[in-house]
């Protein structure tokens, strides 16, 4: 029951990764008790489970994901939201108002209009229905300030780092609040624009250098140097 790859080896779709008693993990599939890669990425084996960390992928909704989306349209009893997924998401008016929605009393366009950005959680999604969003939890809802940056969805785990080490370090160093949308959209809110710019520069650095080791240390270094330049704000 061998595997046919070295750790972190770059594999292409269709490449046979393992044979026999293995489980097909992320971005792989099993056929005739053989495991093949289904995306270009880096192969890895964890406890008999073969995974490929995809280098190219797109966001696909999953229940419980926190995403950042743009309101597209005000509908009859809710909004349609672009969450950079293959489907447009729905946000129901009753969820936002946290009481039953009465069309004669409530004017939806006074709450959210097209172009507004929201942080939301995916409440439900299945093959037959478009994803439904909810904002009924702390930290979710309309975005009123801050800056938005977009990264490839597969790079989000790298921005989080091991057990959140990277993201908490950036938050601490730049004094910014950062919300990561799993769809690859990141919201940075700071006390002043300089801090936000700094956090954005750090995240962009992570996206470009996500392959290198010791990144957390280098980002710390980078942030300290940059802060030194601006007079330690």
């Amino acid at each position: 029951m061998p595997t046919y790859f070295e750790k972190k080896q770059l594999v292409t779709p269709g490449e046979m990764l393992a044979e026999g008693d293995y489980l097909a993990g992320k971005n792989t599939y099993a056929e005739n008790s053989k495991i093949y890669a289904s995306r270009i990425g880096l192969a890895d084996c964890n406890n008999k489970q073969v995974n490929v960390v995809a280098l190219r992928s797109f966001y696909f909704p999953k229940v419980g994901d926190v995403v950042i989306g743009t309101v597209l349209e005000v509908g009859f009893n809710g909004w349609t939201v672009d969450i950079k997924a293959p489907y447009t998401a729905l946000l129901r008016a009753s969820d936002v108002l946290s009481r039953p929605f009465k069309p004669q009393n409530d004017e939806l366009s006074q709450v959210l209009i097209g172009g507004d950005l929201i942080v939301a959680k995916i409440a439900s999604y299945d093959r037959a229905h478009d994803p439904q969003l909810t904002v009924g939890e702390p930290g979710l809802g309309k975005i009123t300030r801050g800056q938005i940056i977009k990264v490839t969805p597969s790079k989000i785990p790298r921005v989080i780092g091991k057990k959140g080490s990277m993201i908490s370090m950036i938050k601490k160093e730049t004094n910014c609040q950062i919300i990561l949308g799993l769809n690859g959209v990141i919201l940075v809110t700071g006390k002043n624009p300089d801090n936000e710019e700094l956090a954005i520069a750090a995240i962009q650095k992570i996206e470009n250098e996500s392959h290198t080791s010791g990144l957390t240390d280098r980002i710390t270094q980078f942030l300290k140097e940059e802060r030194g330049k601006t007079g330690g704000k």
């Binding site: 972190k8 890895d44 091991k162 959140g164």
Partner: peptide, 8 residues
Amino acid sequence: EPEEEDEE
């Protein structure tokens, strides 16, 4: 090509 990948 990454030399290290850390995930949450």
